[in-house]
Design a protein around this nucleic acid. Structure first.
Lengths: 243, 243
DNA sequence: AGGTTTTTAAATGTCAGACAAATAAAAAGA
DNA sequence: TCTTTTTATTTGTCTGACATTTAAAAACCT
């Protein structure tokens, strides 16, 4: 193992890249143990703190996990869907907030992706997922619900809708699109009239999903998109742009 | 700033989380300078190496950048679309390879998402993107092209198709789905007959995009999905599962 | 006074050595 | 044979130091 000490990049970054490449290429497989920090320091001809910084970089991406003790060390981590969700949501959220992505753009992307799932969901959703959609829709109809709780329930509804497609890769991709919009959605205040419209459309969509009618569900989503964008438009009419 | 020294988590992980939360919540804004490592060490009552490990974790997620010198330090990074693409592709690739996601599942997700873009693309694609699609299709028709080059050109074709939707959020989401499948696609050998079928469908799709005919393009994608899955099926028929 | 060079200070990058804590295997003992 | 103790290994953390980079401040010269 050799790295270039004259590279502009940090040594720890180079070491991290070297190990990461080994994982991606399959040279290091899941649950395989990496050499100890002292051995890595020897192999790369650097000090142990430098190796540790490299390992922390990999740990931040959930590529490795570490264990203390006699048989401890750093192990190649299986990147679970759950961890990938979390990373995806964090990245997407920051991407939206830091790049001043317009509400319309984010909204368009989100509903386009959801429409991609809805046909599969109409065919495959479990009774349980359908029940969740009904429950959340019912919750959204409760008076006195805060805007934040309304949003959270909305996310749960759409999450069930997406999970109904029974494709974990789709669920993973959509997690970012749907949940990353939560901060944007939370900036909106939902008057009773808008809530009623949203709940009505949720009911339309749920009915369509139950009936296995993909096109109807897709139309419902399109209507929901229009409703949401109109609501946001009237909201941001005064202000020039979101922060 | 205080952290719990008795927590099961590493101190560096706690510190990283604390700073990450500050960035996500907006307490730290883009290009703002963090306190120096020595100051952070004081604030959190830990040593400088521990702080450094925390900062490296954040650097691994592109949340901060560091600069040496008198006015140097750690700065909150703007998460560009470009960097987010790269992370998204890395994560998606690992997710697919480490979880033994079946080719069918990944393929279904990818084409479902692409169909979500194609209607927007039919309405908005630039002449340039259309030209790219034609160029890549032409390239795919060249005899003597290696399987890898064929795959790479295929990715370029679909990338142009997706970018045609003119929605950076969609492009970002799709980057993971399309490019992460490259290793899987590369495992396939493409006989001349299959290549011809794929090229023909690419032409159908490009024509539909040019004509602004979203439904036709969507149908073309569906046919392409069937073709791809059938090809993979005949490929993996002997072997039980992909590695 | 103005411009150039040198010095200085601050910050990150790296290293060496040490100790603490956790953990499992090996050794000792009942 | 089972339990307890010891031991070795490995990560987690700390202290202190030096190297390197960089920009600002100081000194210098014209």
């Amino acid at each position: 193992m050799q790295i270039d000490p004259n590279s502009p990049a940090d040594l720890s970054a180079q070491i991290a890249k070297s190990i990461r490449d080994a994982i991606i290429s399959g040279d290091l497989i899941v649950d395989e143990r990496l050499p100890s920090e002292a051995e890595l320091a020897d192999q790369f001809s650097v000090s142990r703190p430098t190796v540790r910084e490299a390992l922390k970089r990999l740990a931040a991406q959930s590529l490795i996990r570490t264990q203390r003790g006699a048989t401890g060390g750093a192990f190649v981590n299986r990147l679970s869907f759950e961890k990938a969700y979390a990373q995806q949501i964090t990245t997407s959220t920051l991407l939206l907030s830091m790049n001043a992505v317009s509400f319309d753009t984010a909204c368009e992307a989100r509903f386009a992706l959801e429409r991609a799932c809805v046909f599969l969901s109409a065919a495959r959703r479990t009774p349980d997922q359908l029940a969740t959609m009904r429950t959340e829709t019912f919750r959204q109809n409760q008076p006195g619900l805060t805007d934040e709780a309304f949003c959270a329930s909305d996310v749960a509804f759409h999450r069930a809708l997406v999970d109904g497609a029974a494709n974990p890769v789709l669920s993973y991709q959509l997690a970012g699109a749907v949940e990353a919009m939560l901060p944007l959605m939370n900036m909106i205040t939902y008057p009773a009239r808008s809530r009623a419209a949203i709940v009505a459309l949720h009911t339309v969509i749920t009915d369509a999903i139950e009936a296995g009618d993909g096109p109807a569900a897709s139309d419902g989503l399109s209507a929901l998109e229009s409703e949401t964008r109109a609501l946001a438009q009237s909201m941001f009419a005064d202000r020039p742009a979101a922060t």
